[in-house]
Write a protein that binds this DNA or RNA. Structure first.
Length: 759
DNA sequence: TCGGCACAAATTTTT
DNA sequence: TTTGTGCCGA
């Protein structure tokens, strides 16, 4: 085990294996390395069995990465070691023993959408208008109660005098009841029920306490009270608990993360050994100065100061633009410039913003500039309607008690079972204290239903019965394929697609898109079946569990692209060049935080700013605009206070002097029209550099795109960042182009050329 | 039962 | 501006 490459505090953190340890790990201080080395040290040097180690992270990505890196360090197999997210760890525990607290072991996991549906149902049942009670608000109150381990009963007692909260308490109570009846747990329950299991079953707790002799928790600043309690229950006896976190990077307070957990770790455990990792291996000193300076405006924090041995560095550049369109163009021109002058690859860049809505303007600009990009976030694969529908079928196959899923699919595709029928079945179900599915099963004896309705219901039940028996012999992928076909779901989409085609209304067929997504689901299932990393049996239930607990279905990113994401999403990542856009009051810090007038809210925004800044390794650009159109409304914007909080000697204000902004109005409009109109109708993203498709089908103007390979001296460039021009010479990807009003310019075909013939 | 239309809401989201 | 939701008429 080589510990020499570690710095002194890092080594200390690795070798201090006994007793409670708090590692305050600043951004970029190598905490993952410390954690993985520590695990390796435990196994190789301290001869701790992998089975006695528990490492908890927040994301699957982090968990996978950690396991991979531990595997690189240690000889022995890491199979027996638990490296999990909080949630998957709890699922593993619950699958074994949840029956001890009265739940069905084949429970399903409800995601946020299912949760919302169920809450709405509960409100309806209690005759609580969703006009008076904001559903979102109710959900967050329930969720926050669960995070704090407040049971429905205690919640009710606590708010006895508050009429409004009393209603919420009723919803909470009914909601929990329904979850149980559906054999379902929501994300919060996974933690809460595990704690309940531990508290009510000493032997179970004892078993895990004894098993997990060494516990490590990553991103400790993001733990909720419930997660804190889960860890405490396991660790309080042997006290070999090592938590890693950075209070300055706590940006999920609104999701129940309790910053007190890290600030008060010393009070919760005795003789805590504290290690501060302050040496940053990621960024230049200039960038760190900026970050340190910003964060020093916060009061509630453990003092720490990042430093780097990478002295100096380029100054942080601040640029003010007129509006978000210019802002996007600015970003593009800088990217273009750095790609050309400094031979940067597109992978080197990230554009970070506060709200997803900002992405559009950036995207449009990148499209116009023909720079390929990846957007992170947005609608997730598993949240797409068609995927959720298919998953709902699978869930009902596993667990027919799941009313929410039954209701989702009973009339999808349309089979003539309307709202009235469903309502009747629901009423009957709640009267008989049974699941909807079981009521459907004996529709024949149901006098509420017309003959017609009975027939329809029986049709559905027949399909489901066939599927349920098929599940016993089919693999997951086969079952998905079969479900798509048997239920007519696929045919429904195909019919719609064909109908659309006939109308040829120019719209890209979203139906084909959905069909593709379903095919993607099948290949995910195939991957699952062939994967060696999946824990447990490879049955349908395990598959659903994997689906429920993972958000990122996207895989390979071979091509070099600029990354676009929110600042929240960027946590844990790093990029040589970072753009932080939209640095304006009421956007960042976000208006709610400004209006709330609470320091807590602003401080969290500031931490977010700290996170964003520390993503940058070498260069950082910060932009703000004077006029921002957001949600279709134009607003005059004021520069963010965070800009004023930057240290003067680390920054430099720059004006726009870049040629890249000089699109002619006409070019601009055409490009914009093109990108919007045809992007989707091509079989590939034609703006990405691997342009394969050259013809635009159904193009009313009758124009063609030309393969980049065919561009040579004499070719006409109809659209580029400089407008129209003629190619004078070509040398590989470098073009020399003559422009009517700009003279001779150099363009790189990979990024800047967009040739359109006969427009 | 379904499509169309008016109306409202729109931070951030690891699981 | 975009997206979702609820209500109404065919």
């Amino acid at each position: 085990m080589d510990l020499n490459s570690l710095n002194a505090p890092q080594r200390d953190a690795v070798m201090r294996t006994e007793g409670p340890v708090l590692i305050l790990a600043g951004a970029g201080s190598g905490k993952t390395r410390v954690l993985t080395t520590r695990i390796g040290y435990l196994i190789d040097e301290k001869k701790v069995l992998p089975a006695n180690i528990l490492a908890i992270t927040f994301t699957n990505k982090a968990a996978n990465e950690m396991r991979e890196r531990v595997e690189e360090t240690v000889e022995s197999s890491t199979k027996d070691m638990w490296i999990n997210t909080f949630h998957s760890c709890c699922v593993k525990i619950l699958r074994r023993d949840i029956n001890k607290i009265g739940y069905n072991r084949s429970f399903v996991i409800y995601d946020a959408t299912d949760q919302a549906t169920l809450v709405k149902d509960c409100m309806k049942e209690l005759d609580i208008s969703d006009k008076l009670f904001d559903v979102k608000g109710v959900i967050s109150q329930i969720s926050s109660a669960k995070d704090k381990l407040i049971s429905p009963r205690r919640f009710k007692e606590q708010y006895r005098s508050d009429v409004r909260m009393d209603k919420v308490a009723d919803i909470y109570t009914l909601y929990q009841d329904r979850l149980k009846r559906n054999s379902a747990l929501d994300f919060d329950d996974l933690i809460v029920k595990t704690i309940e299991l531990f508290r009510k079953n000493e032997d179970v707790l004892k078993y895990y306490r004894n098993k997990f002799r060494y516990i490590m928790v990553d991103e400790y600043q993001d733990t909720s009270h419930a997660q804190y309690e889960f860890v405490r229950l396991l660790a309080c006896e042997h006290q070999n608990i090592c938590v890693v976190g950075d209070d300055d990077q706590s940006i999920y307070g609104w999701r129940g993360a309790d910053i007190k957990n890290i600030l008060e770790f010393e009070k919760d455990y005795e003789n805590v050994h504290i290690v501060k990792l302050e040496q940053n291996y990621r960024s230049t000193q200039v960038i760190l100065d900026a970050a340190n300076h910003i964060i020093s405006n916060n009061t509630e924090r453990k003092s720490k100061k990042l430093w780097s041995d990478k002295e100096g560095g380029k100054l942080v550049k601040i640029c003010q633009l007129d509006n978000e369109i210019d802002e996007g163009d600015f970003v593009c021109s800088k990217i273009d410039e750095l790609v050309r002058k400094e031979k940067r690859s597109l992978n080197d860049f990230a554009v970070l913003y506060r709200a997803n809505a900002q992405a559009r303007a950036i995207e449009d600009a990148l499209n116009r500039a023909m720079i390929s990009y990846n957007i992170y976030g947005g609608t997730k694969f598993y949240e797409r309607k068609e995927i959720k529908d298919l998953i709902a079928y699978l869930r009902v196959i596993v667990n027919p008690q799941d009313d929410i899923s039954v209701k989702r699919i009973i009339n999808v595709p349309a089979r003539g079972i309307g709202l009235k029928t469903i309502e009747k079945m629901e009423d009957r179900a709640s009267l008989k204290q049974e699941s909807i599915y079981s009521v459907l099963l004996d529709a024949e004896d149901n006098s509420d239903l017309s003959t017609r309705a009975k027939a329809k219901v029986n049709g559905f039940i027949d399909i489901m019965s066939i599927l349920r028996s098929s599940a016993e012999v089919y693999s997951v992928s086969e079952l998905i394929d079969y479900t798509m076909k048997l239920t007519g779901y696929l045919k429904d989409l195909e019919d719609n697609r064909d109908k659309n085609e006939k109308l040829s209304n120019g719209k890209y067929d979203e139906y084909q898109d959905r069909i593709d997504n379903l095919k993607e689901l099948i290949s995910i299932a195939l991957e699952f079946e062939n994967s060696e990393e999946i824990e447990g049996e490879k049955n349908l239930q395990t598959f659903l569990e994997n689906v429920a607990l993972s958000s990122d279905a996207d895989g390979e990113e071979s091509e070099s692209r600029v990354s676009l994401m929110t600042m929240h999403t960027s946590k844990g990542l790093e990029f040589p060049v970072v753009f932080i856009v939209g640095m304006e009051e009421n956007l960042f810090p976000i208006s709610r935080a400004v209006k709330s007038m609470s320091d807590t809210a602003i401080e969290e925004e500031r931490r977010l700013c700290y996170v964003a800044i520390t993503r940058a390794e070498e260069e950082l650009f910060i932009t703000n605009v004077r006029n921002r159109t957001l949600y279709g409304k134009r607003n005059v914007a004021i520069q963010s206070r965070f800009i004023e909080e930057l240290p003067e000697n680390s920054i430099e204000t720059i004006g726009v002097v870049d040629e890249g902004l000089s699109y002619s109005r006409a070019t601009y409009n055409v490009l914009d029209k093109y990108t919007k109109k045809y992007k989707k109708s091509m079989n590939m993203d034609f703006l990405s550099k691997n342009v394969k498709a050259t013809k635009i089908e159904g193009n009313k103007e009758g124009s063609d795109l030309t393969l980049k390979d065919s561009v040579k001296a004499g070719s006409k460039i109809y659209h580029s960042k400089f407008g129209k021009g003629t190619v004078v010479a070509r040398n590989g990807n470098d073009l020399t182009v003559a422009f009517a009003n700009k003279g001779i310019k150099r363009l790189n075909i990979e990024y800047t050329v967009f040739e359109v013939l006969s427009i």
